[in-house]
Design a protein around this nucleic acid. Structure first.
Lengths: 229, 229
DNA sequence: GCGACTTTGTTCAGGCGTTCACAAGCGGTT
DNA sequence: AACCGCTTGTGAACGCCTGAACAAAGTCGC
């Protein structure tokens, strides 16, 4: 019965659904029972019409004239995004960034649990980070097999990211979050999402320069929109 | 003066230009003098035609029949993305993630230098992170004024992110990188880029579920879309 | 010096995502 | 019971970006 979602959901929409879900969780904690698309969109930083369109991919889930039930919509979104079941993750590369991610509360609260931390550095292996002991990267295959991890997070230096990725894929991991500044090559059927922190800063630097250097030239169309994405 | 770039560069292109720049830096270190669009595109993980289109926004910068000069293109990209001048950044919220970012080598090597670290927690203030001493967040305005920081990085909890953002904007910071899971509201003329780590994982979880749950249903290419029911 | 090959730069069409605007539907009120 | 206002859901247009095909241009070989 719950199996009836023949429509394809665009990836951009999926990302926003995750944002809506977080906003809803906050509203639920605040005791709210209903929200309108306008209010929810404002909190999420998107257009109200776009929000409704996003939600429409899940089928009707609001009541006209009233709005959306906070708990109802939250449950529906939770279900659409993969349910509440805990998703075991392995993290490879326990440097500064890796350590920070290992005990980032935002992950655990959403059902993402790190079940293994791996590193090559003998000085790091054995150390305890976020409640887990760092293990040597040689144990990657065994670890994935025993924990049935489905998500791999790569925070290694760029040079070894591809080989780590290959090993993850070879033992069945099909979802990879990559923080290393390289483009990973994976076979079809494997999803990679890349987070590139220095690119983000560089884009900001570009926009900054553009503001300072060419406002008289092409300033007109660039204003508008008070909320950023 | 190289002041002649009347064309507007799409933001998506800017982000890719930053990736190309990094790949080029690696090639230059390797001693390469020329690259073709195909090779560069492969290393960056994009389509060759798209890469050429991206570069065309900067005007002709390759030689037909030969390819691109590694150093020449690198310089051109560096210039387009804001030059090599050091950009002072302030970082607010020195938790796990903030500490990791504070001494992330990838930033410094691209001209982004943290000139101030701020936090509210008395236990964190005064501590030394990545070569800088953490200062109380009350000094934010003074710090920005004295260092002329142009970029603010927010790694605070969600509840205080907006107020920190407002204070940054009020003292002239117009570029903000936000890691807090909230949509920041800013006046026109201020750019915000948001990095949401748990959203990335949630998208992966969705794709994972979609693979497992609906391969027999919508695996094929695709049919009509936009038609309603 | 000329021809052919290689690679860029550009143009074109297609898909995707976003935004706007309107009709349908539900609750509250009289 | 019927009306009115409010909000959702959807259809359609617009613009952006992506992916492929073509022409210009430069180099290498003979």
């Amino acid at each position: 019965m719950p199996q009836s979602r023949p429509r394809i959901i665009p990836e951009a929409t999926v990302a926003r659904l995750a944002v809506y879900l977080r906003v809803l969780a906050g509203l639920a904690d605040g005791g709210r029972s209903h929200v309108s698309s306008g209010e929810l969109a404002s909190a999420a930083g998107v257009n109200p019409a776009g929000l409704r369109k996003d939600l429409s991919y899940l089928g009707p889930c609001g009541v006209r004239g009233v709005g959306y039930s906070v708990s109802g919509l939250r449950d529906r979104l939770t279900d659409a995004l993969g349910g509440e079941r805990s998703r075991p993750c392995v993290l490879i590369g326990i440097g500064r960034l890796g350590s920070a991610l290992a005990d980032y509360a935002g992950f655990a609260s959403r059902g993402f649990e790190f079940v293994g931390l791996l590193d090559t550095d003998p000085a790091t292996v054995g150390h305890r980070v976020g409640g887990l002991q760092v293990r040597p990267v040689q144990e990657l295959e065994a670890l994935v097999a025993e924990t049935h991890a489905t998500i791999g997070v790569i925070t290694t230096p760029a040079e070894v990211a591809q080989s780590v990725c290959d090993r993850l894929v070879s033992v069945g991991v099909r979802s990879i979050l990559n923080f290393a500044p390289v483009a990973l090559t994976v076979p079809a059927g494997v999803d990679v999402r890349k987070v590139d922190l220095s690119v983000e800063l560089q884009v900001l630097a570009f926009l900054d320069q553009q503001r300072d250097g060419t406002p008289p030239l092409l300033a007109p169309l660039r204003a508008a929109q008070g909320v950023a994405r």
